[in-house]
Nucleic acid binder design. Sequence first.
DNA 1: GGGGAATGTTAATGCTGTCAACATGGGGCA
DNA 2: TGCCCCATGTTGACAGCATTAACATTCCCC
Lengths: 235, 235
Amino acid sequence: MVTKPGSKSGYHHGDLRNALVAAAVELATQGGPERVVLREAARRVGVSATAAYRHFDGQADLLWEVKAHAQVVLADRMEEAARAVAESTDPGAAATSRFLALGRGYIGFAVECPGLFRSAFCPVPAAAAADEDEGGDGDGDGDGGGDGDGPGTVNGGREPQARSFELLVQSLDQLLAHGRMAPGRRPLAEAVAWSAVHGVAELILEGPFAHLPAEERDAVIESTLSVVLAGLAAP
Amino acid sequence: MVTKPGSKSGYHHGDLRNALVAAAVELATQGGPERVVLREAARRVGVSATAAYRHFDGQADLLWEVKAHAQVVLADRMEEAARAVAESTDPGAAATSRFLALGRGYIGFAVECPGLFRSAFCPVPAAAAADEDEGGDGDGDGDGGGDGDGPGTVNGGREPQARSFELLVQSLDQLLAHGRMAPGRRPLAEAVAWSAVHGVAELILEGPFAHLPAEERDAVIESTLSVVLAGLAAP
DNA sequence: GGGGAATGTTAATGCTGTCAACATGGGGCA
DNA sequence: TGCCCCATGTTGACAGCATTAACATTCCCC
């Protein structure tokens, strides 16, 4: 029943939920999670504010959806970065490159889409736990091009940030398998790697590295990744 | 509520600015920066909302003050943790312990005072750059003390988060001086260390490590510090 | 084709930040 | 000492926000 495209007869929008999410995502993209204001999203869609309550529990629920979407985009970005890694004959070098690519993708997303990135980790007031079952959503997500675009086709399954974590786990397993990590470091390696990478991103966005020239900023990123890699390799 | 000095009559508060900052800090301590609402702070001090505008440019300015205060408290916490380190005959071991203490202090503050910690790194809408010189503010301010501790008398010099950075720099210099760090790692070491530690804190507060049992959470912290230390030591 | 339910609209409440106009009284100047 | 000025605090008002209640429209199934 969730007919995607505009079967709009004026009164019934036909795809309000996705349209609202899309508008909210755009708000978040430019301005961060604090700019995700329900009334403004409704205004942009051309609908009264209270219409949103037919599809969301409230502003927090809408923000939650934005957050979930942002995490999906983050994972997409990481995956794409990892896929673009040049193949190497040395599997150890490949594993290392893949790990670095994931980290650069993560931070790159934060730098290029600060609003969305911050939304991916923003605190949402009250957990809107209702997981509605979206029936058949054959999402042909289409790797669409530009960021802005896209419909709001949010994920059906409600499990945030699982995919980026999975990517990291695989990468770390590869590092271990090809002798680029000390076995004793493996257990909590995901936490360590994630923390370092997330910290860089956060400090670039809101912290002391905010006004660093791009060149120096990149040096900080590379340095951090390098140290983590070396630390994981050390016994 | 918390009227500091032997104040005046009912009309003129006598120390409204500091009282408002103190109230705002309390709000931030329990509930984070988004709970720093000007009207509520004024209400708690027992004053009309608009009275705050005699002392602040607006809510953003008040929040800025809270942020600055939070950064001071964070630095205090780190300093205290570092000072509590047991002296060692081995200067290298001492440098390592001091570094670990700083990191644990940083994260410990985040875990114990999440609201304040988040306030220390929250985005403040528009930078309220006006540093007014309060002439007669001379009286000895905070001796410290109980719960709420210090008054709102925030630092005079307006340079946030400088002190914690300085502590880190010193610690890293010690590590280098006593052979616990590869010289090539020194240049951007502060960025690396800060990122890792900040990332752990952030992910514990808002991210995927939020609902970790305390024991495992501590393991993540120790693991991260250990990897960073090893990475900085590796050539 | 009719009726129920899904969807969207207007009206209203209480919160917030912020400005304008008014009130008070403390401290400096005569 | 007395008095006036202005820093400080107050009430009132307005706009924007989230949210609820009551009302209106249209889709879709029987």
